[in-house]
């Protein structure tokens, strides 16, 4: 079949290796590669699996010399003890407040800015985009000392407002960039057609354009949420007090506290799992957008 479909090339290469085709016959190379792919997938997923498995295994079993690789000792004790830990609940509340405040501000600010740069051509537009793109690359590690000083002189260390302001500044650039793609994707002609039909500019925007932008706002919002929710570096510096810890900072001190009594890995993994699972679920929603946003500049503007 292969010989019929593919004219054998005159090259030597074609002689000892039949050219690839869409033939249905099983090729051993493909099977070998598939096995390799599965092995690598297993290797990659193992840490996540191990985290979740350890979370539902009693600590005594984890301390035994032979690990078990299946959930044969299933228990919810670890998860329950983390969920009733006052430190965890406190950090959860703090994370919700910080992320919530930052998220609302980021979305509003970035949405306005995205409208401006994709619906108008104005002097300074290009410089603004350039600045935004450079700013989103700046590492928190190069700024946190100054931010610490600023917040400490304003008395905003350990305050929700202080860290939220920094998160807004950190997240606004990429969110503008992401939303810009969505806004540009809604043709202005739609809005103009509605205006010809008698709607005012504002009404046309609210009734026609805004609903079409909703998916974009959700995707950008989830992305910004994940960034703020997972943020570690700035929170470590700006929220030094134990009562002001967000979840990532709390997990770190939970592990350190546990280390004093020989690390209860079951509880620590239960805490990690509780922090990771919601993030993973949200992440899966927006993943496609993120890849294209970072690499191919999202939708063409």
């Amino acid at each position: 079949m292969s010989a019929v479909l593919t004219p054998a090339g005159p090259t030597v290469a074609a002689a000892h290796e039949p050219p690839r085709l869409r033939g249905r016959r099983v090729r051993p190379a493909k099977i070998l590669l598939s096995v390799l792919g599965l092995a690598l997938a297993l290797l990659w997923v193992f840490p996540v699996y191990w985290m979740m498995l350890s979370a539902v295994t009693p600590d005594a079993v984890l301390r035994s010399s032979t690990p078990s690789f299946l959930p044969v000792h299933f228990t919810l004790t670890n998860l329950r003890s983390v969920l009733t830990d006052s430190g965890f609940l406190n950090a959860l509340g703090m994370s919700l407040m910080v992320t919530g405040l930052a998220l609302v501000l980021v979305l509003v600010f970035a949405f306005f800015a995205a409208l401006a740069i994709s619906r108008w051509r104005f002097r300074g537009r290009k410089s603004f985009i350039l600045a935004v793109l450079f700013i989103q690359m700046l590492p928190a590690e190069g700024l946190f000392i100054a931010q610490y000083q600023m917040m400490s002189s304003l008395g905003l260390l350990n305050q929700v407002v202080g860290i939220s302001v920094l998160y807004v500044a950190m997240l606004v650039p990429f969110t503008i960039w992401m939303l810009r793609g969505f806004v540009a994707g809604v043709p202005i002609e739609l809005e103009e057609a509605a205006m010809v039909d008698g709607l005012s500019r504002t009404k046309a925007f609210v009734r026609i354009t805004f609903p079409l932008l909703a998916p974009g706002l959700v995707a950008s919002g989830v992305y910004a949420f994940l960034q703020a929710w997972n943020e570690f570096t700035t929170a470590l510096v700006i929220l030094p007090a134990e009562s002001a810890q967000t979840l990532p900072i709390w997990l770190r001190s939970f592990l350190s506290a546990s280390a004093n009594r020989g690390i209860d890995w079951a509880e620590v993994m239960a805490a990690s799992t509780l922090i990771a699972v919601p993030v993973i679920v949200f992440f899966l929603f927006v993943q496609g957008r993120m890849t294209s946003g970072l690499v191919s500049g999202a939708v063409k503007g």
Partner: peptide
């Protein structure tokens, strides 16, 4: 799954 795992959780694991 690996990509989505929060950094602090990943280091802890």
């Amino acid at each position: 799954l690996a990509w989505a795992t929060p950094l602090v959780a990943a280091v802890t694991v």
